[in-house]
Amino acid sequence: MAKPGHLTLRNIRKQYTVNGNAFTVLDGVSLDIAPGEFVSIVGHSGCGKSTLLRLVMGLDGEYEGEILLDGHRLRGTSLDRGIVFQEHRLFPWLSVTDNIGLALQNSPLTKAERRDAIQQHVELVGLQGFEKAWPNQLSGGMSQRVAIARALVNRPEILLLDEPFGALDALNRAKLQAELQRIWQVEGITMILVTHDVEEAIFLGDRVVVMEPRPGRIKRIVPVATPHPRVRNDCNLLQVRESVLEEFREETIETISNAA
């Protein structure tokens, strides 16, 4: 039998109401994600990427279409799915360990097991020595690592990441991308990464989903065949990058000619 955790999105449509007017954020989004796969989603900001992740996470239940996990419709949130928000959303009044421990409030682990799990995940994201620190004593990159540890500590089957490295400088970002790749290989879980950084999407993803805005739709899905672990200047990756960037170039030309 196949591993569980098969995610299916069928014809998702989502509307928001602003000042009494409904506008469509997502339209006709369909996607199949196999267990253990790494899927990247790229698109301009505002094209509904965060909204899509919120739907998959179960934070928002008002949409049309179906989101199925192993054939069953999603209802609400679950500890089997973890999320790293765009902003780290750590609680400022809790130390690093307590922030991670918060995720285990409703886990079946014993107290000792919890302590071990927390320590293990602090090490996984390389934050030994900062266990007692408060969030506002951490740099942006460190906060994001804590958020990743907090999302992983429940050992979810699926991890959703919403532009987790968006606010970081280039050096830190490259480092954390490499670490995320390592964690993904070690843990063997499904990851869905939302980003507006094409290079990041290609470096990490088995497939890259290119979205277009107004309303948010899937424009193209680009497979990236290069095996993991990858190196950044792999020739195949560079080729895929050219082809994805081409999609955005067309879009820009379209927008400009539409505006004219």
């Binding site: 934070l59 949130t77 500890l79 928000f85 409030q105």
Partner: peptide
Amino acid sequence: NYFEVGSVFRFSRWQVVRYIVLPAAV
């Protein structure tokens, strides 16, 4: 945002009060 984090970790009403509302309101 904080309440969404609570819902991600499947907090009960009481846990939301105990771990989010009270400390945030301190």
